[in-house]
């Protein structure tokens, strides 16, 4: 995939870690020496409400701000984004550029036929990844869905960012090494995740494992 100027839109439900996934991806990209600008959808944060976040990646300085209207990659973190229209962007692929990538968290294909036809016409590569299933399998919590989605992205988008730099960014994000601004709710979620895993170290290790498994899964496509 051409990597000069890459815009990613992540759509999911509040609490799934869509914003954190964007943060981690941006951190990994910047660590690799490229430019990244990351922002969430601008609105009130609520659990299970539609949420979006955006990652702009470039080899040169990025000026554009706000929602990504014309993405190269769309990541759908929750099937309900498509099946129930729980999304700020309708249809979920609105504005998608030609020959782009769509990653959907679902064990089975869920894109309605007529939408699939439109995606085909755009030359989009549509990949279904059982991200939540993988998360539960390897971390025993669906809260790590954002990790497996990132792993899948790594496996599918060549030259975007290495798996190792994602791992480092994950460690930074959860070990408190980086200065993180978290909203009240996402700080609470971090704590919830941490208590589930007892220790940060084992959480990071489990997360890394899940990311790797999702990466390997995605590599088959």
């Amino acid at each position: 995939m051409e990597n000069q100027n890459l815009d990613i839109r992540m759509a999911g439900l509040g609490g799934q870690g869509v914003v954190t996934a964007a943060h981690i991806l941006g951190t990994a990209v910047v660590a690799a020496g490229k430019y990244a600008v990351v922002n969430p959808f601008f609105g009130a944060e609520k659990r299970l409400a539609p949420t979006e976040s955006y990652v702009r990646i470039s080899t040169e300085k990025i000026y554009d701000r706000g929602e990504v209207l014309y993405p190269n990659i769309i990541m759908v973190f929750a099937p309900q984004v498509i099946t129930q229209g729980k999304s700020h962007t309708m249809p979920f692929y609105a504005g998608l550029k030609k020959n782009s990538l769509v990653i959907i968290n679902s064990p089975d294909p869920i894109v309605p036929e007529k939408d699939m036809a439109k995606l085909d016409a755009l030359g989009a590569k549509v990949v279904h990844v059982p991200a939540t299933k993988l998360a539960v399998e390897f971390t025993e919590t669906d809260l790590a869905t954002n990790m497996t989605m990132l792993g899948a992205l790594c496996g599918l988008a060549d030259n975007l960012v290495t798996l190792e730099s994602i791992m480092t960014a994950v460690e930074e994000r959860f070990s408190g090494k980086s200065k993180v601004v978290a909203s009240g709710t996402s700080a609470a979620l971090d704590e919830a995740i941490k208590s589930k895993f007892e220790k940060t170290a084992s959480m990071i290790e489990m997360n890394s494992n899940a990311i790797r498994k999702a990466y390997e899964f995605a590599k088959q496509f």
């Binding site: 941006g26 910047v30 430019y35 990244a36 600008v37 990351v38 922002n39 601008f42 706000g66």
Partner: peptide, 11 residues
């Protein structure tokens, strides 16, 4: 500008 600057992460 709120969000465009406050909630946007960059270098």
């Amino acid at each position: 500008d709120g969000f465009f600057v406050t909630h946007t992460r960059e270098v």
